[in-house]
Structures are given as C-alpha cells and as structure tokens.
Design a binder for these strands. Structure first.
Lengths: 242, 242
DNA sequence: TCCTTAGAACCTGTATTACAGGTTGTTATA
DNA sequence: TATAACAACCTGTAATACAGGTTCTAAGGA
C-alpha cells in the first residue's frame, strides 16, 4: 500500500508530516461538506484509502482532533463533529501558567476586560431564566458560605452563567477556559479575606452584580463587576501572587 | 507487555481511554518537573515503560499534545516543551466558524472588547520600539494601498503588534487566534469601502490609533479603536454577514 | 594535542498485521 | 410481528519492522 515513494500529489505539502496533512484533510472535509455538530466523519479505513497512508497516520490525526475536542470519538462508532468545547483552550492556558509563560494576574486582567463586557451584555440580553440562574448561583454562594469548596464552584458557575447570558458563545468559550486557572487560585484569594465580614462582603458583591443584571442596568452591572475584579486582584497581590 | 487486565492503578481512570491517561501523565510530568519551554520530555520508549502501555498509545498522546502546540516534535529528537502558541485556539475558533456555531459578528464583538483594552495598555506600556513597529504597519498599509492582500496582512500585523505592546501574552494569544478569521472576512469589508476615499479613511483610522499610542494617550487610543471596529462591523453588516 | 570523521546508539516517522470488543443492521426463528 | 442471534463494520490497543534523522563518541589523521 505504501508503494509510492514519488509524491502522488506533487504540490502543497502543508507542513512536514503525513499526520498534519491528514488533519488538514479532515478539517477540510468538514468545511467542504458543510458538516454540523453530530454529523459523522469518514471511517479510518476510508480515510486511509483516500489519503493513501497507513491507518497509523490517520488514527493519529483523528486522535489529535479529538484531543482538541473538534471531533468526538468512541469505540465502534464513527467519529462525529463536536460541539464547541473549551477543552483545548483550557489546556493552552494551563500550559502557559504551569510553564510560567503567563501569570495569574495577567489572566485576571483579561478576565476583567472580558467580563465587564459579558456582564453588560447579560444585563441587556438575559432571559428571565438566565437571570434566575445567575441569582441562584449568588444565593448558593451565601448559603454554602462555610464551605469554601462549594462557594468556589458556585462562584465559577456564576461567571459562566453570565457569559452564557451574553448570548455570544465566544465569550463563554474564553470565560470557561479560564475556570481551570480560577480553581487553582481561588482559595488563595478567599484566605486573604480572613474575617467573615470580608468574605460576606465579597459574596455581597456577587449579589449586587446579579441584581443589576436582573434590573437590566448594564452600566451598574459593569461597575459592580469592575469593583469585584479590582478587589480580587488586590487579594491575590496581597497574597504575593505575581 | 500488556499482561495487566486488572488495573494496575485501581484509582482515577481520568477519562475512558489509555491515551487520555497518557496525555495527562505527560502534562503532569511537565508540571511536576517544572519544565520550561525548550526542555526535553521523556522519550516515547521511556513513557511506554513507565505507563506500561504500547508505543501506539504513547505516540497518540504525544501527537495530540503536538497538535495543540503544547509540545514540539521532530524526527530523531526528543519532544520538547513548546512556547505559548496560538495554534490550538485558532483551530477551535475556526471550527466554530465553519460549523456555524459562532458568527463572524460575534468574533468582532469579542475583538472589539479585547482590543479596546490592548490599545489602552499599549498606549501606557509600549516601548519606543513597539510604538515604531505599530506605526510602521500603519504606514505600510498606506504604501501598499493598491494591493488589498498586502493591506490586509499589515492590518493583521498592526493589531497583533498592539496586542504584543500590551505586554500581556494572554491578549496576544487571543488576538492572534482571531487572525485566521480575519483573513477569511477582511476582503469583504474592504470591498464595501468601494471608493478610494473610504478605503483611505479606514487606513487613516489606523494611523490615528498608532499616533495615540505614540503619544501615550490610552483614552484617545481606545476611542479611535472603538470607532474603527464600529465601522468594520457596519461594513460587514452592510455586506450581509450575519 | 587538536580537529575531523566514521560509526554506534538512540530517537522518531510510518507501515503492517493481529485481535479484542463495541455498534448496527439483517436475518432467521419463535 | 417481535425478538434474538448473527454478520459486517468499526474503533482500541498491541507488537513488530524498518527507514531515516540526531547525537555522542571514539578512532584516526594533521
């Protein structure tokens, strides 16, 4: 099957390597066929024949796309086009953090920038259901106030819910991608708020945001969000996080 | 070598599949060893022994990380930890666009939000060298004014240079990730500016931004950037881009 | 002694074969 | 007609083989 030592396609070696070429062929197929999430892709065997490479190469290509969550794979079934997912972005951000190419503070600056916008959009566009979900997360933060782990998860859900209410999936994608970083640093900020009073004040900040969204006041919502982030960054800096 | 049908590690099968486990083991290794960009990773053979799986599995794991640009691979050499790269993010965004899960307009809204910040930061933090690079891109747009392709590339370089001058690599990462989308839609916006006058006006907008950055005026810079995006979005809408 | 060079050792890239197990559609039987 | 068994196809993982690139070392020559 690997007779051809002469390139059957003399043009356009896209990047060194058959696997890269296969990845490109697959994404190209999705584009050309106009596939939507859930639609099935060709089988590995079919791709093997079409590209005239070994199954190994095709598998590594499929697996790579699966790792980026561009496609879904499962045993016995064809691979399918995946719904938008934050998996790859999260990994890139985490990689940047763990290799110290980006700092936590830089992430918070980006979050502040983006979430000042998502909160304003949410105030303008949120459905009643979305406003309720945002309020519920804030309420659950207060109710679980003695359980930091729970507060954190509701905090993260709060911000993701706001991003969802912005009705722009790109914002959701980015905000959700940062959640992993938040999980690793959140506790630090919580601990610097040593008194019950300081911690409840932080929760109150979330309730203010939720209320502004409910009222549909984008300017007020953005203001509260900005204050929230300023305090969070200050807490991280106080704890010595660069 | 594959004797174990009983799980040697009874706990924490992270997700169904040996490959996912291998990916996690590699990223875990990077974290645990505190590896920096350029540092070498274990060879495939070493990983094969350590995880007690076949080389196939290890290879697919390495390849997946390579596809996300978290590691660099090349024949004969060990894989190394990669510098922060926009590859994976670009692919996610492009996937969202081609499968119509996100719209071009939504991307522009995100870009506007982010770049109003990067331009303000650039005005505050830019080095003289960075200010010069930004100005140069604007100038090259005007000089190549009859060659749309060239204008586009300098336009993209302009925005990436501003992001770089913000001195926050996360902003750079995101802005650069959007460049692919820009390349696919830029011409549409250019065409709606049918007259020379309208096209030169758009270039003038870039020069205004560059000047504000040079002067170190973040408010003015952000204002010009906002106007630029408002006009660009209007141009896309006039052309019927949802 | 120092530089050059040939080669060994190790590494990745790709192909091939094999088999286990999941999924799906079809057919035969109750 | 409904159900159950089966065949065909698919992916998951393993093992092996070989080609070609990289690196280090040691032998040989200046």
């Amino acid at each position: 099957m690997q007779v051809s030592m002469e390139p059957t396609e003399p043009m356009s070696e896209p990047s060194p390597g058959l696997v890269s070429a296969a990845i490109q062929a697959i994404t190209q197929h999705i584009r050309a066929e106009g596939l939507a999430p859930g639609d099935p892709l060709p089988s590995e065997a079919a791709m093997t024949r079409q590209l005239n490479v070994s199954r190994t190469v095709v598998r590594e290509a499929f697996r790579s796309l699966s790792a980026m969550r561009l496609i879904d794979m499962s045993a016995g079934r064809r691979a399918t086009v995946a719904k938008l997912d934050t998996g790859a972005m999260s990994m890139v951000i985490e990689h940047g953090i763990t290799t110290q190419q980006i700092s936590v503070q830089q992430v918070y600056d980006v979050r502040r920038t983006i979430e000042m916008r998502t909160v304003a959009l949410a105030a303008l566009r949120r459905t009643d259901q979305e406003a309720a979900a945002i309020g519920r997360s804030a309420r659950l933060m207060r109710e679980n106030f003695r359980n930091p782990e729970a507060v954190m998860e509701h905090d993260i859900a709060f911000h993701e819910a706001i991003a969802a209410a912005s009705h722009n999936p790109v914002f959701s994608l980015i905000v959700t991608a940062f959640s992993g970083v938040t999980r690793r640093t959140w506790v630090i900020g919580w601990r610097t708020r040593s008194s019950d009073e300081a911690q409840l004040k932080m929760i109150k900040g979330h309730e203010d945001i939720a209320e502004a969204i409910l009222k549909g006041d984008p300017r007020l919502a953005a203001e509260h969000m900005a204050q929230h982030f300023d305090k969070s960054v200050k807490a991280l800096l106080d704890a010595g996080i660069a």
